[in-house]
């Protein structure tokens, strides 16, 4: 798929999912198990993304570099209840700083 196809197909599906909630009867999702699985889905996927974005290297290798330290800084800031932007900027600055000093 070209990048444009990926972008547009993704957009179409995202809208379809939003619209589906207005179209299907609410009873379709009344099963507690289905509701619980769909509620947990974002946590699972976001964790998968964090792992692959933090230690994923070229061609499936596991790499420890500045991204791991940046993620550690992000954890500390989230524990201190800092907001999204502070966390993201501090993470980027950590990685950029370490690389400027020649590591990771």
């Amino acid at each position: 798929m070209s990048t444009w196809t990926t972008v547009l197909v993704g957009c179409l599906l995202a809208y379809g999912l939003k619209l589906s909630g207005y179209v299907v009867p609410a009873s379709w999702l009344e099963g507690r198990r289905v509701a619980r699985i769909t509620a947990l889905l974002p946590a699972a996927l976001l964790t998968g993304l964090i792992v692959t974005q933090t230690v994923g290297g070229p061609r499936g290798s596991l790499t420890v570099d500045a991204r791991v330290v940046a993620l550690g800084v992000a954890v500390v800031l989230l524990l201190l209840r800092r907001g999204f932007l502070v966390v993201v900027i501090a993470g980027a600055a950590t990685a950029a700083g370490l690389r400027a000093m020649g590591w990771g």
Binding site: L46, I50, L71
Partner: peptide
């Protein structure tokens, strides 16, 4: 690294 931190947040 910002991407991973965004997902974490």
């Amino acid at each position: 690294a910002a991407a991973a931190c965004a997902f974490l947040a």
